Amino acid sequence: MKWLALILLVISAESFAQMNMSFAMRGYPTLRCQPTTLSSWVPQANSLKAIYHLNGTGTVTNGSVVASEIAVANATASSPSSTLSFADHPGAPASIAFLKNYLTATGNSNDSISTSAASLADLPAATWNFWVNMGIPSSTPIRLFYKSNNGTSAGYYFTLSPSGSFDFRKVHSITNMVVQTCPIATSFNNTWRMITVTWDGTSNATGVKIYMNGFELITTGSGSVYLASPGTCPNAATYGGYTYQITGVGGFTSDAAYPFYLVGAPSGTNTSPTSIAFSGSMDEFAVWNKELTSAEVFMLYRNQKCN
């Protein structure tokens, strides 16, 4: 009987491991939580320029500071109408305090979270990563992050369009670099997803990749499960699984003079591109000054799945 019990225990352990691996291969969260030290759950931690845990308490008041683990990139939250709020993720482990909380915004342009930190100016390459819970907009693109002089000569921005496509643009003097995903499935609505944008620092549109839950959002491979119609996405065959890839022309100029916005679109930043302020919930926004690999993006997703 002891031998039988031991055999059953080994089989059960192996089955659990296979199930856990199966979840990981499909992009689902694995069934464990990571330690709380930064280096243990963030790849390329030495290249991390900013991380916003968005773990304030209660309603934000004008001039309050949003908690950030990297002091040089603290963000200021300005909320004249007091519509920014924080809450706990249901069931999040108390042992990982900074993963417990998240920020909710209601699309008010004047409710902003921004930073002018020098560490985010003129990145030589970049990765932007965050968790989001929102719906696909009904009529006007929603901005998810933004650092530009209204898209005229400097900076970059990332939006979600009413078609369900993510759109990243790096401003150039003649032709902007544009990368747009195929439309995502409506299952995105009101569900926490991890979104990642990587950029290799060049003007070549193929140097930008957009991921959801650790997988690149292209019409082939594991990432296609998040798309609305991976087999019929317009222009996907031409643009390597994306709807559009337009290489930038004319070079880009310094973006050091312009704040980096997570939430809000106050006066002077809300006219171009045509987009409205973020509405929904956001958490764990991080910026690197290098392009993470696809393996590192997937590792980041696995390590942060407590959200």
Score class of each variant (00 low, 15 high):
Ala92Val: 02
Pro93Asp: 12
Ala94Ser: 13
Ala94Phe: 10
Ser95Met: 04
Ala97Asn: 06
Ala97Val: 10
Phe98Trp: 15
Leu99Arg: 13
Lys100Thr: 15
Asn101Gln: 15
Tyr102Glu: 07
Leu103Met: 14
Leu103Glu: 10
Thr104His: 08
Thr106Asn: 14
Asn108Gln: 14
Asn108Phe: 10
Ser109Arg: 13
Ser109Met: 04
Asn110Ala: 15
Asn110Lys: 12
Asn110Gly: 15
Asp111Lys: 00
Ser112Leu: 07
Ser112Lys: 09
Ile113Pro: 09
Ile113Val: 15
Ile113Trp: 11
Ser114Lys: 13
Ser119Val: 15
Ser119Asp: 14
Leu123Ser: 11
Leu123Trp: 12
Pro124Thr: 09
Thr127Trp: 11
Trp128Glu: 04
Asn133Thr: 04
Asn133Trp: 05
Asn133Phe: 06
Met134Gly: 01
Met134Glu: 10
Ser138Lys: 11
Ser139Leu: 02
Thr140Tyr: 11
Thr140Phe: 11
Pro141Arg: 08
Pro141Ser: 14
Ile142Phe: 09
Arg143Gln: 13
Arg143Pro: 00
Leu144Arg: 04
Leu144Tyr: 05
Leu144Thr: 03
Phe145Ala: 06
Tyr146Thr: 04
Asn149Leu: 01
Asn150Gln: 14
Gly151Gln: 12
Thr152Gly: 00
Ser153Met: 01
Phe158Lys: 06
Leu160Ala: 03
Pro162Cys: 01
Gly164Tyr: 08
Gly164Lys: 09
Ser165Thr: 07
Ser165Asn: 10
Asp167Pro: 00
Phe168Trp: 15
Phe168Gln: 06
Arg169Gln: 14
Lys170Cys: 01
Val171Gln: 02
His172Gly: 02
Ser173Cys: 01
Ser173Leu: 15
Ile174Ser: 14
Asn176Leu: 06
Asn176Pro: 03
Val178Thr: 13
Val178Asp: 10
Val179Trp: 09
Val179Asp: 01
Val179His: 03
Gln180Ala: 05
Gln180Asp: 01
Thr181Arg: 12
Thr181Trp: 13
Cys182Lys: 12
Cys182Thr: 13
Pro183Ala: 13
Pro183Asp: 09
Ile184Ser: 05
Ala185Lys: 15
Thr186Glu: 03
Phe188Asp: 05
Phe188Gly: 01
Asn190Asp: 15
Asn190Cys: 01
Asn190His: 10
Met194Glu: 15
Ile195Leu: 11
Thr198His: 08
Asp200Tyr: 12
Asp200Ala: 12
